[in-house]
């Protein structure tokens, strides 16, 4: 995504390189913020704060981590710590993994879910489940890259992602049937 040479130049104090670098990543930063906070204005604020933090902290980035996971870690932390306070989310029960109900095969008319429904379903996920989904689908991150970004063990990332998809599937299935239960 970002050329290593540019990162090194930015780290060594080349301010123009640092600004160029910020321009290259601003959309990625914003996109994550947008889907985590689910609000354009908050996303702008969170993304700007993340860019300022990247600007000031560029010297502390170490090449042993991927740059893209380093910046996603900064933006997800800001979003979760500052902009998601007190937002209601559904609880995901560890032992409630598989089928909530036996679903009848016959009512499986597979129509596309409305994007708006998907966004509001994502918004109901617990913070870290949502962050995992956003990194997986909006940043195309692998399990490992998500683990690195969120500082979570690999198995936790998988279980968050799997549970989040099941939860989303249940929520969207309920929307489709015309009513949100619970």
């Amino acid at each position: 995504m970002v050329e290593p040479g540019l990162i090194r130049a930015a780290q060594s104090g080349d301010r123009d390189a640092l600004i160029t670098l910020l321009r290259e990543i601003e959309t990625h930063v914003y996109r994550t913020a947008y889907y985590i906070v689910n609000n354009e204005q908050d996303a702008m604020d969170a993304a700007q704060e993340a860019l300022i933090r990247i600007y000031t902290k560029i010297g502390s980035y170490e090449e042993k981590a991927q740059f893209k996971t380093w910046i996603q870690r900064i933006v997800t932390n800001i979003c979760i710590d500052k902009f998601r306070r007190n937002k209601p989310t559904v609880s995901i029960d560890e032992h409630d993994m598989v089928f909530h109900e036996k679903q009848n095969v016959e009512d499986e008319v597979l129509s596309a879910y409305a994007a708006q429904d998907i966004r509001s379903a994502i918004d109901q996920l617990p913070d870290h489940h949502r962050a995992v989904v956003v990194l997986r689908y909006l940043q195309d991150f692998s399990y490992n890259e998500i683990a690195e970004s969120l500082d979570l063990p690999l198995n936790t990332v998988k279980s968050y992602l799997f549970r989040a998809r099941q939860q989303l599937q249940t929520l969207l299935h309920d929307y489709q049937k015309g009513g949100v239960r619970g």
């Binding site: 321009r23 930063v29 914003y30 996109r31 947008y34 860019l51």
Partner: peptide, 29 residues
């Protein structure tokens, strides 16, 4: 059936709009 639904969901997630900021954030800061 569950797999079909999950595949649909996953495809929808992949197709979420790749939003971009309405103005340059770097210029703003």
């Amino acid at each position: 059936a569950m797999f079909e639904r999950l595949k649909t969901l996953s495809a929808e997630l992949e197709n979420l709009p790749h939003v971009t900021p309405s103005y340059s954030l770097v210029d703003a800061i």
